[in-house]
């Protein structure tokens, strides 16, 4: 019985120590898991109507070469992007004023299957 009391006291003391945080109080900004959130941040942003959904993004390499993550070359670079890609690093870059976000599932379901891009020679 004494050992059980000792164990209980140890566990209670341990749990008290856990309450010591930098702020001295439990977090009031609990991050909810995806399965419990009543509304996801992504949905809220998308629902604001102020964003543009993106299908894909390809890194714009430096020196005029526009390449994808699999080595494919984009032949439809936006003129501004192509110009920026040839500029030395450190030269101010153009970016869109639109807010880009990941495409929500309901929009993705409306899209046909992507056609594989033809591979072009690097510039």
């Amino acid at each position: 019985m004494k050992s059980n009391h000792a164990l209980f006291i140890l566990l209670v003391l341990t749990s008290s120590a856990f309450a010591e945080t930098h702020s001295g109080q439990a977090s009031s900004n609990a991050v909810q898991s995806g399965s419990h959130a009543s509304a996801s941040a992504g949905h809220s942003i998308a629902a604001s109507g102020q964003v543009t959904s993106a299908v894909s993004a390809i890194p714009l390499a430096i020196g005029g070469l526009v390449s994808g993550t699999a080595g494919a070359v984009s032949s439809q670079a936006a003129r501004g992007s192509a110009n920026a890609a040839t500029a030395p690093i450190g030269t101010p870059l153009d970016i869109t004023d639109e807010t880009i976000t990941v495409m929500p599932p309901n929009e993705a379901l409306k899209k046909p299957a992507p056609v594989p891009a033809k591979s072009d020679k690097a510039i």
Binding site: S38, A41, S44, S48, Q50, T99
Partner: peptide, 29 residues
């Protein structure tokens, strides 16, 4: 993407664009 927003969409959009413009202004690839 599943967390509850602590800021309004407008605040997040504005700040995200500010970060982008800062990176772009410094020519960061």
């Amino acid at each position: 993407a599943s967390e509850t927003l602590k800021f309004t969409p407008e605040q997040i959009i504005q700040f995200a664009k500010q970060v982008e413009k800062t990176l772009a202004g410094k020519g960061a690839h």
